[in-house]
Amino acid sequence: MKTFTKYFFAFWFLAFLLFAYWQLNDPDPEIWVSVYVAAALFSALAFKGKHPLIPLSIGIIACIIGAVYFFPDSVWDWIGFELEHKDLSMKTQESEEARETFGLLIVAIVMSVSAFVGWRKKASINKT
């Protein structure tokens, strides 16, 4: 299991750096580049076996609040729009916000995995 988690966090470290790079031409890059760089840093820490539970918890809560804020009126309309156009360029503000919602949810999920691994690690240390 230890090897799997190392590969998991290595993958997300690289993916979040790539996501940050793609955000450089976003209308508000300072927000989204920062979010993905922070997620990459948490993934790098997790790769090294460090899981700072309080900062991770704050990050998870912030991402969930942001995802709720940006959540599109209709997820199915957005998915249909994306599939219909088969084009990843931003067409509407709603499609951009939908993508930002799912980006935040991905960050929250990966940070939650790190927090869970850290919590289990801490619990096993406290047992001994």
Rank of each mutant, 00 (worst) to 15 (best):
I65K: 10
S57L: 05
F47Q: 02
F71R: 03
H51N: 10
E82Y: 03
E82L: 12
E82H: 05
P72I: 02
G66N: 06
A67V: 02
E82A: 10
G49S: 08
I79C: 07
I79P: 01
P52A: 14
L83Y: 05
F47A: 10
D77A: 10
G59N: 03
H51K: 08
F71V: 05
A62S: 09
D87F: 00
V75Q: 09
L83G: 06
F71L: 07
F81Y: 15
K50F: 15
I60H: 01
W76A: 11
P52C: 12
S89H: 08
W76F: 12
L83C: 07
V75G: 12
K86Q: 13
K50H: 13
P55E: 05
V75D: 15
S89Q: 14
K86R: 12
E84Q: 12
I79D: 04
D87A: 13
L88T: 11
D77T: 15
I61P: 02
G66C: 05
W78N: 09
I54T: 15
F71W: 07
C63R: 00
A46N: 01
D87S: 08
G80M: 11
I58C: 07
P55S: 06
E84F: 07
L53I: 07
L56D: 00
P55M: 05
F81L: 08
I54F: 09
V68I: 13
H85Q: 13
I79V: 13
S74P: 04
W76S: 13
I58F: 14
G66D: 04
A62C: 11
L88D: 14
W78Y: 10
I60S: 01
C63T: 03
P52F: 03
P72C: 07
W76Y: 13
I79T: 09
I61N: 04
